[in-house]
């Protein structure tokens, strides 16, 4: 099993390599010259040329990429053009906020979405089901930036109970958590409902009932454990998806996280930060996927057996 995961970890390398090539190409083929940006409009052509030399921008692209790659492998993502601080340092400084936000969003999505789906399935075709499904549909359909703005309008301006920006207290986290988690919540609720309806009519649930054990045990031990398997899949996929939402959420609520860092860097044409930030995101998504696979093995002994036999 350990071997399976070591192998999976090694497979992450080509993925990251691919991402690094793509992001490097986009950043370097985009119009705009970082040297010009750094020196401002008053700089002479000569100064700009010198700086380009210094930054290594005059070398052929593949040489530049090679330098970037070998340095990145050593943990050196270069220095920010804007602040001159090491990029990795900037990323690590911003990462806790993003991690907190993403985790809270996921937590929100699961703790609300799962019970909602279970409830809808248990009350199939009643008004409870209709209400839950409606709620899920709405949560899925409205764009999250709009949710963010509406929440802000309601809870920061009309009834000012929550701060609209910053990252100092738990109060700052409430709205961003909802904005980030609402779509995943909706997806989880719908997945849970359909998975429940599928599992409930399985023979093994009838077998469990025939044993005369309590309804609660049938639900938690026999039904939910099986329901969780597809739900975890979808949650894993949407976790990567919601990292995209992090960028929007951090921007709306002025949270100093990784998403904001990258957005600001793009505006400032601070290409080392953009490259490094995106690569870091890709690494996070890869690791989350790996954790999801690990969770599968915990939930489903058949998958565990597969992992075991896969050398």
């Amino acid at each position: 099993m350990l071997r399976y995961f070591t192998k999976r970890l090694i497979f992450l390398i080509p993925v990251l390599l691919g991402v690094s090539i793509v992001i490097f190409a986009i950043v370097h083929l985009a119009p705009g010259d970082p040297a010009e940006v750094m020196l401002g409009p008053s700089a002479t052509q000569e100064d700009i040329g010198k700086l380009r030399e210094q930054l290594g921008l005059t070398k052929p692209l593949y040489v530049q990429y090679w330098i970037f790659l070998t340095n990145a492998l050593k943990g050196d993502l270069g220095r920010s053009i804007k602040s001159n601080a090491p990029v990795l340092e900037e990323i690590l400084e911003r990462f806790p906020a993003t991690l907190t936000l993403a985790s809270l969003g996921m937590l929100f999505a699961i703790t609300v979405g799962l019970p909602l789906g279970v409830l809808a399935a248990l009350k199939q075709n009643t008004w409870v089901d209709a209400l839950c499904s409606f709620f899920a549909l709405v949560g899925f359909s409205i764009p999250n930036f709009w949710v963010g703005l509406m929440l802000m309008l309601l809870l920061s301006i009309t009834i000012p109970i929550l701060p609209s920006s910053g990252f100092d207290s738990w109060k700052n986290l409430i709205m961003p958590t909802i904005v980030l988690g609402i779509q995943t919540m909706a997806v989880i609720a719908r997945m849970t409902r359909s998975s429940m309806l599928e599992v409930i009519r399985q023979d093994y649930v009838r077998t469990a009932r025939a044993k005369g054990i309590s309804d609660r045990l049938v639900l938690t031990r026999h039904i939910l454990t099986n329901v969780m398997i597809p739900v975890v899949t979808i949650a894993g996929i949407y976790f990567g998806h919601s990292l995209g939402g992090v960028v929007i959420t951090e921007t709306i609520f002025s949270i100093p996280g990784l998403g904001r860092l990258i957005v600001d860097a793009i505006r400032a044409q601070d290409y080392p930060v953009v490259q490094g930030g995106v690569l870091f995101f890709a690494l996070c998504v890869g690791i989350v996927n790996l954790l999801v696979d690990l969770l599968y093995a915990v939930l489903d002994p058949r998958i565990k057996a597969q992992y075991r036999s896969a050398k």
């Binding site: 023979d203 093994y204 009838r206 077998t207 044993k211 005369g212 054990i213 454990t225 002994p301």
Partner: peptide
């Protein structure tokens, strides 16, 4: 009825491939 089911009357179902829960020992 729960006290009778699985205790005084029990049932064996048709298909052994589907009548056991796959994720429980």
């Amino acid at each position: 009825m729960k006290k009778i089911r699985g205790n005084r009357i029990s049932m064996i179902f048709q298909d052994p491939m589907t009548s056991l829960n796959p994720v429980l020992s």
